[in-house]
């Protein structure tokens, strides 16, 4: 467990700030900055030919990657870390669709997939190690592949 302890040893206290009624999937790139502030992350941007990736390093040891099209729209989000991220913040208006979907998981704790219209949310893992991704299948820009969202 040494590696995890080392990561968590660097933590600062999590944000206690009030929650804004705005977020990111399907919204403008400017909301990435809101996400960054809300989840107390550091931010790094990598530009590719067809899209840009905003990497957020969370204070709790997790990572969030937000995928932004040339028009400035967030079309995908991925996450990983010891705690679940605040998906209400990251998915914005799509969070209600995700949590309200009549899914047929039938009891399993380690996985949930929701496909509703163009929204796909996939959540995997268990406490201490979560991974997931969400994207809008009709918003992936030309030149970007589904497999780029990772």
């Amino acid at each position: 467990m040494a590696s995890l302890v080392a990561v968590l040893g660097l933590l600062v206290t999590a944000s206690l700030a009030a929650f804004p009624a705005r977020a990111t999937l399907g919204e403008d790139v400017k909301t990435v900055e809101l996400d960054r502030q809300q989840i107390r992350a550091s931010r790094q941007v990598t530009t590719h030919a067809a899209y840009a990736v905003h990497d957020l390093q969370l204070a709790d040891g997790g990572l969030v990657h937000e995928y932004v099209s040339p028009t400035g729209a967030v079309f995908g989000v991925t996450w990983g870390g010891p705690f679940m991220p605040n998906l209400r913040q990251l998915l914005g208006a799509h969070f209600a669709t995700y949590t309200g979907s009549p899914h047929q998981q039938r009891g399993g704790r380690g996985h949930l997939a929701v496909h509703e219209g163009s929204l796909v949310v996939e959540s995997n893992g268990r406490m201490r190690s979560f991974h997931g991704r969400a994207y809008l299948s009709d918003a992936i820009p030309a030149g970007a592949a589904l497999d780029d969202i990772k």
């Binding site: 997790g62 996450w79 990983g80 380690g110 996985h111 991974h131 991704r133 990772k150």
Partner: peptide, 10 residues
């Protein structure tokens, strides 16, 4: 370093 990116095989 953190191995968090995408899921593996469950």
């Amino acid at each position: 370093g953190p191995a968090y990116a995408t899921a593996g095989i469950d």
